[in-house]
Design a protein around this nucleic acid. Structure first.
Lengths: 209, 209
DNA sequence: TAGATTGTTAATCGATTAACAATC
DNA sequence: TAGATTGTTAATCGATTAACAATC
């Protein structure tokens, strides 16, 4: 039986893989067959040695003297990131941002479709957003189990975010993308990523003038 | 005349300052007067030594044996990040995301109000979003100069993003937050930050199950 | 074959953390 | 004063980059 190798790879590496994937998919559309780490590095502004090292954590995907096969590398990165299967996502918060995310077609293409939307506001519950009906937050646990959801998006106000995350964790969600502008507490086995436009712009402000 | 100290501080440090600020502002609302790096570290999940070091790049803001004055530290971080003045922001792209961003009230509070919205779609030009009228993209340069804008947000499809960024740079914008799922080319003096929900979720997928 | 490019080791660089004197 | 906590130096850790043998 084949024992899957699972080396401990740093988060920095994992976060570059989607960038590589996106780039390779564009090359594929442009009917490019082969690419070298040098070309990739030039286009993505990343050191070629780093690209080779990142990929080499997971196998020998290239050919010496030739480079990487674009379709093959796409397939491999999709496997590594587990994008070779459908990964339904739960969204909590049907405000402006939640609606924008629901309508974002790129997620569906990436096998990361939002599969259920929750809100606590009775005015929003029952309304339709991008073919999904907004469900009451109390339904979260049962729906997450039903749909086999492992990834959640938090798009509620900061004050409500920790409670939402606690429920997500309780329901078995293991990866969370948080848009609420607050630091959240999750157990060690749960991965959380933060996205905050205000913080990003505030950091940019430092460099301006 | 006081010569402003401008040490070269790493981007990692600058990106933590908005997190500190957000946290301190919450403490201030809760009427907390003083905080130690240890307390901050516990709440933000950041090593206390790192917090002290980050702050010490910019001055001696704390008091030995006591900690940091919350209102004073807020003031200082706002000065460092240049948030003690109004920083108008240009938004290009009046789609779902652009609309969500325009309606996001936290930016206004943070002195980072979106001051002008541009789109190339004649159907969108002239419509009102959050008290602003969508302007034609050709107006970008003149409006940026008129309003003294230094920061831009790109919320257009990937295929159009580079052209938009080129115009922004030409108009004198120095900091860009890009939501388009593509790597962009900017001159060295321009700072660019990327935000891509798809990439974030794809990276999370790796850690799930 | 000659030229190109990978995979990988070793060197470098930079960021994080520990430790502690200074001092409130 | 005694206890607490900063600012800062030194130690550690981890990530990036250079270099090159292997090989297509």
């Amino acid at each position: 039986m084949l024992q899957e190798k699972t080396p401990i790879v740093s988060q920095a590496v994992i976060r570059r893989l989607p960038i590589y994937l996106r780039y390779l998919q564009q090359l594929h559309l442009d009917e490019v067959d082969t690419v070298s780490s040098q070309e990739m590095g030039q286009d993505l502004d990343i050191n070629p040695a780093q690209i080779r090292k990142d990929l080499a954590y997971f196998g020998e995907f290239g050919r010496k003297g030739i480079g990487y096969s674009v379709p093959y590398l796409i397939e491999k990165i999709r496997q590594i990131l587990k994008l070779d299967r459908s990964l339904p996502v739960a969204l909590v918060g049907a405000g402006h941002l939640g609606i924008a995310l629901s309508n974002y077609s790129r997620l569906r293409q990436a096998e990361l479709a939002i599969a259920a939307i929750f809100d606590k506001d009775p005015q929003k519950i029952g309304t339709k957003i991008a073919e999904l009906v907004v469900e009451p937050i109390d339904r979260l646990e049962s729906r997450v189990r039903e749909l086999g959801i492992r990834i959640g998006i938090v798009a509620v106000p900061a004050a409500e975010a920790q409670a939402v995350v606690d429920r997500m964790v309780g329901a078995g969600i293991l990866g969370i993308l948080n848009f609420a502008p607050t630091t959240l507490r999750v157990p060690g086995e749960v991965h959380i990523r933060y996205s905050d436009v205000t913080s990003e712009l505030q950091a940019l402000a430092y460099y301006v003038e």
